[in-house]
Amino acid sequence: MAETNHPFYEQHRGAMEAAMRQRLDLAEATLCERAHLTDMDGIRQEVMNEFEIVLTQMPYVGGAVSRMSDFFMRLIGFMAISRVLRRHGVPLPVIGDIERETYKAQLLTVPEAERLASGRQFLSSENQILLREQAAKSATESHQNEFPEDFVYDFVEPGPGDTFEFGIDYRACGFCKFAGRHGDKEILPNICGLDFDAYATRGIHLERTQTLAGGASHCNFRFSRLASD
């Protein structure tokens, strides 16, 4: 295990720690009710200590030029939460429910207009061009040699009769690699479950019927605009 954080992550350390503290604030009531934990000060400290370990374990996948760096920075902290709750005997399904409820609450602290604007940008033709380029790059031998812990994915164009705007097939997952390396495979599906709210709160419908974590050959993400009420 590395003893220090990568400089890129160290640069964003303050923001990541603040996000973790906010999650713990939002999760406190649920942790008491669903996980039956009472020493919340102790749990907070234990999670933040574990997060320090996770930070040293985070793989560098290209920094600001890679869209997947943001995925790691936003979601890897849930590995720390999961590890601590598992040590306290909280069942995996309960951990998943707590994390998803907490993440959704955190996402909803962002103003709706800002969230929906982010969703429109994600679905935009300009972003699809970028996704195609990064998908092609992710599959190159040179990129995989330089960043072996990165995601590998294909951009999927809709065919006749398809209702989605575009898709992404992840053939290798950075979180799966991380989990396999650090003994977190059993908590990995809970991380996958966070994706649905991450997109829905931005006005995007995600359809996904299989995951690498579930034993499939790839994760099949399909994106479309979420129907308004």
Rank of each mutant, 00 (worst) to 15 (best):
T38M: 09
T38D: 10
D39G: 07
M40R: 11
D41H: 10
G42N: 06
I43H: 03
R44G: 02
R44W: 03
R44F: 01
E46F: 00
V47H: 00
N49V: 05
E50C: 13
L55F: 02
T56R: 15
P59M: 09
Y60G: 08
Y60V: 05
V61A: 03
G62N: 06
G62I: 07
G62H: 05
G63K: 08
F71V: 14
F71H: 08
M73I: 07
L75M: 13
G77A: 03
M79H: 11
S82K: 02
S82D: 12
V84T: 12
V90S: 00
P93H: 10
P93N: 10
V94W: 00
I95Q: 14
I95D: 01
E99W: 02
R100Q: 14
T102D: 01
A105E: 08
P111Q: 04
E112Q: 14
A113C: 04
R115D: 01
L116W: 04
A117K: 14
A117G: 05
G119L: 07
G119C: 06
R120V: 01
L123Q: 06
L123H: 06
L131V: 13
L131G: 01
R132Q: 15
A136N: 10
A136P: 02
A136Q: 13
K137W: 14
S138P: 02
S138C: 07
S142D: 12
E146D: 12
E149C: 06
E149V: 00
D150S: 15
Y153L: 11
F155E: 08
P160L: 12
G161Y: 09
D162E: 15
F164V: 04
E165M: 13
F166K: 09
F166A: 10
D169S: 11
